[in-house]
Design a protein around this nucleic acid. Structure first.
Length: 638
RNA sequence: GGGCAUGUGGCGCAACUUGGAUAGCGCAUCUGGCUUCGGACCAGAUGGUUGCGGGUUCAAAUCCCGUCAUGCCCGCCA
């Protein structure tokens, strides 16, 4: 059994609960409520105060009308009987009213190293997902432009969240929604002859630049009606307009996916708006909602002739008195055309398997990781996509309201919370926004595309790699500088809480001094070299030869504790859907490791050698596993 | 007008969900450290009324009320 930080916490909690039940049950009104308080009272104190700590005596003090110090003193001595070798607990002390628990550092270290050596890349994974299927949608960029740095944030978040959910035993389907029937594509169609010319440029960039021109022209010539006429024709998926725009879109998406691949981002399935329309998914959905009486058809008033739905977010009352005109949202306009929300509802019904609508799928592309990405299509065959237990949408904070509406409607339909919206703050640049319409992504000197960001970053890293103080002759400069560039970008984007908005500035983005991605990679490379020097090959070391009595209360044990907390961290990142939690963990581990090898020589000193080599091996594995969750590649040398 | 989010040393962030011991990390600034397992490194120092004002509590960055600032959302657009 793997006794990591989660289980030790539970052991401590149970000991506390059982002792408190014995001594304080008379003053505790509801023990179930109080056990929650016990759970929350446990935290990790600073190292000199122990390995786990509980502040529960303060709560008991009020109930029992005694001082917390007194209670802590009595409790500590009673809790000593719970200490046991099998839990690796060795000491209980009370201090200032807190109860502090110490682990047996030798035994716990041995246990953690054994666990990580036997589980290797599986160490730290959790089973909380219990094979439930989750469909994660990202980044769903319109096919009329290249990915800019805002789309990149979305894609990196989606990719990392996918990895984190997989590490928690969810079955993950990475899905990308392509809106090839939107207004923007109609505009492309309107102006393609005048503005879209073949070029050596990447097709998505070509299209994006042409689109900005086209949009300007439409505004100047007041051609909105002509565009709308095209849009209407596109709705018929057999029309030549629809067929042509699908062709243009596919070419553009392939170009966008070259960008995705350069960042190591992959998908399982692409779903196209045009296929949704062809398969009449929308009609099925509207019928379903009408049958459930969730929607209604208005016959009079402002929304006469429309199909509408209550405009309320989760938790808001849906009773009749607030159910006036203002609180409705249109699904089908009086002219019979569906709104965006209606389409989104229909699509989510497919995602969650609420209505049965079989799309056909065919192979879209074989990705560099060897996995095929499939696409919905007119021809092809039925496959097992969709029908998920949970749908996660990686969508900007601007869409909070429609996403909440969506969540609420599905809560009404299914009676449970099966849609999650991972909302993230938008990326802006100094001059303004990254608008696709106005071309904000084009920038003034360098364009704010994901492609040029990687290109610029690679220039920087290749410079640093080749001009290092002690240049290495045994590395492939191109390969290493690309890996470092990617690490720098990914770490920078993922270390920040998704909720925070980001102001992108070139000089800050390219400042590698303040970036932790390469630092963590460096620590991995250092660990590799130490092991190489130690002569550790594939067979590893004999842990039985390690003298665990030599573990101190310094950086060595801090590393052990950090590694023991890996599963806890992976679960937390999943529950809160925050890759930044993983990034912080990796950063902390790197910092401790750096301190460790500075202070504690690994190779000199026979009696320490096997033990510390083992710790270095464990660090290397832990860094690898966790960096993988934020899609950062490691390198043995740099 | 209504709703959501954000506000923490000069800068960028963490801790807020679940109140707890001295508010943690990086950059920048200053001072030190390589004949030693890789200097993309390490040690030390300077720098904070956690936007502001109340309240709850033995205890508040964290919870509650108010307030200010910034950004976003609120269409028979997508």
């Amino acid at each position: 059994m793997n006794l990591n930080s989660i289980k030790i916490k539970r052991v401590f909690e149970e000991a506390l609960a059982s002792e408190i039940r014995k001594s304080f049950s008379e003053v505790i009104p509801d023990f179930n409520v109080f056990s929650r308080e016990i759970h929350n009272s446990i935290s990790t104190p600073r190292p000199e105060q122990g390995d786990l700590s509980s502040s529960i005596c303060f709560a008991l003090a009020r109930l029992a009308k005694k001082s917390p110090m007194e209670i802590a003193h009595e409790m500590a001595s009673k809790l000593e009987t719970y200490l046991g070798k099998e839990d690796f607990t060795s000491r209980i002390k009370n201090e200032n009213g807190y109860i502090n628990l110490w682990l047996d550092e030798a035994e716990y270290s041995k246990h953690v190293l054994e666990a990580i050596f036997s589980e290797k890349e599986k160490y730290g994974i959790s089973s909380i997902g219990s094979a439930r299927k989750v469909i994660i949608e990202f980044p769903s960029v319109n096919p009329n432009k290249p990915w800019h740095i805002g789309h990149l944030r979305n894609a990196l978040l989606g990719d990392s969240i996918s990895r984190i959910f997989e590490a928690n035993s969810y079955i993950v389907e990475r899905e990308d929604y392509i809106d090839d029937l939107g207004l923007q594509m109609a505009e492309i169609l309107w102006g393609r002859e005048k503005f879209l010319h073949e070029d050596t440029k990447k097709y998505d960039t070509l299209l994006g630049e042409a689109y900005v021109e086209i949009n300007k022209e439409i505004t100047e010539r007041h051609a909105e009606k002509e565009v709308n006429a095209i849009l209407k024709k596109m709705e018929d998926t057999s029309s030549k307009e629809s067929v042509e725009i699908r062709k243009i879109s596919e070419k553009s998406v392939r170009a966008q996916y070259d960008t995705a691949f350069s960042y190591g981002i992959y998908h399982d399935v692409l779903v196209w708006e045009s296929d949704i329309v062809r398969e009449k998914l929308l009609k099925h959905a509207i019928d379903f909602l009408a049958e459930k009486k969730i929607t209604q058809k208005c016959t009079e008033g402002k929304y006469a002739g429309c199909v509408v739905i209550a405009n309320k977010e989760p938790g808001q009352a849906t009773d009749a008195e607030t159910d006036d005109e203002e609180n409705r949202k249109v699904l089908i306009r009086s002219n019979g055309v569906a709104t965006y929300l209606a389409k989104d509802l229909a699509f989510h019904m497919w995602k969650l398997g609420i209505i049965d609508c079989q799309f056909n799928f065919s192979e879209f592309i074989i990705q560099p990781n060897g996995k095929k990405a499939y696409t919905s299509s007119e021809n092809g065959k039925a496959m097992g996509f969709g029908k998920a237990d949970l749908a996660i949408n990686i969508i900007g904070a601007a869409q909070q309201h429609p996403q909440n509406l969506l969540k609420r409607i599905f809560e009404e339909i299914t009676g449970e919370q099966r849609i999650l919206h991972l909302s993230y703050g938008e990326v802006s640049v100094k001059g303004g926004t990254l608008s696709g319409r106005k071309g904000g992504w084009i920038g003034t000197t360098k364009s704010y595309t994901a492609d040029s960001l990687l290109e610029e970053m690679e220039k920087m890293t290749s410079d640093i790699v080749s001009n290092a103080e002690k240049p290495r002759s045994d590395i492939d400069i191109k390969e290493v500088s690309r890996k470092v560039a990617l690490a720098a970008i990914k770490f920078e984007f993922l270390k920040t809480d998704p909720e925070k908005k980001v102001l992108f500035e070139w000089d800050k983005a390219l400042d590698l001094n303040s970036n932790s991605g390469p630092y963590c990679m460096y620590m991995y490379a250092r660990a590799s070299r130490i092991l190489e020097r130690a002569g550790v090959g594939k067979e590893g070391i004999r842990l039985a030869d390690a003298d665990f009595k030599k573990i101190t209360r310094g950086e060595d044990f801090m590393i052990i504790k950090q590694i023991g907390a890996m599963q806890e961290t992976i679960e937390k990142a999943c529950r809160e859907y925050k890759p930044s939690i993983i990034a912080t963990y990796v950063m902390e581990l790197s910092l401790i490791f750096s301190n460790f090898y500075e202070k504690m020589p690994v190779l000199s000193g026979e009696e320490y050698r096997t033990l510390r080599t083992g710790i270095v091996m464990a660090v290397k594995q832990a860094l690898f596993n966790m960096l993988c969750l934020i899609n950062i590649d490691t390198t043995e040398r740099m």
